[in-house]
């Protein structure tokens, strides 16, 4: 009921009717794994520098349909984010206008669920853009990889600290690191995490 009402509200708010498909309930089996690189960690203020996304179909990452865009920032890049992402302004030579990139992203993900590592952040920051361009936040269902991982992690005691850092998860799952951290590489690695976690059982034992 609530969902339907929300969908109706969104439909009214939607400025560009071309994106009505985003509001259809998804019936397929595919999934999009998404990662963004941003100028900072505040979705309200910071900007997206690049977006990487891949489609998962069954147990495969469909590499030839991968998505990678660099966005033109509105102002200069902060020293802080240069340190994190190693993206300098000169690296943004292939960058496109933010609106173009976001619209292409929407065409790419359609109404598929989106998964990612701390996907909440990515969802929020992308939504800042979609609100601006099409009038609504990103309506897609989200799947959080770190909680998916947490549910499958067998703790040895209830006090054990579960390291949910990206690299720690990759290591714990024995997954290979692929080159440098950029949006697409991280999306592919996140996709691997998802595929691997999907084959593992959830634990409902004493410490979970």
């Amino acid at each position: 009921m609530f969902k339907a009402w929300r969908r109706k509200q969104s439909r009214n708010a939607l400025k560009d009717k071309k994106y009505e498909i985003l509001l259809q309930p998804y019936t397929g089996t595919e999934l999009v794994v998404l990662d963004t690189e941003t100028t900072g960690l505040d979705p309200k203020k910071d900007e997206i520098l690049s977006i990487g996304a891949v489609i998962i179909r069954d147990n495969k990452i469909v590499m030839h349909r991968s998505f990678e865009r660099f966005l033109k920032p509105s102002t200069g890049i902060s020293q802080e984010s240069i340190k994190i992402h190693h993206i300098r302004e000169c690296d943004l030579a292939h960058a496109v206008e933010a609106e173009v990139a976001i619209r292409e992203l929407l065409d790419f993900i359609e109404n598929r669920p989106i998964a990612g590592y701390y996907i909440g952040f990515d969802h929020q920051i992308v939504s800042q853009y979609t609100k601006r361009y099409i009038g609504i936040p990103l309506p897609n269902e989200t799947i959080e990889l770190s909680s998916m991982y947490y549910r499958r992690y067998r703790k040895s005691s209830s006090y054990e600290f579960v390291d949910l850092k990206f690299d720690a998860i990759m290591n714990a799952l024995h997954l290979p690191f692929l080159g440098k951290h950029d949006a697409l590489n991280d999306a592919v690695m996140s996709a691997m995490i998802y595929l691997k976690l999907k084959t593992m059982p959830e634990y409902k034992g004493a410490f979970s």
């Binding site: 495969k60 990452i61 469909v62 590499m63 030839h64 592919v188 691997m192 691997k196 084959t199």
Partner: peptide, 11 residues
């Protein structure tokens, strides 16, 4: 050639 490539995961 890479147009035909996918990454697969098999347990």
């Amino acid at each position: 050639a890479m147009q035909y490539a996918e990454i697969g995961f098999y347990p």
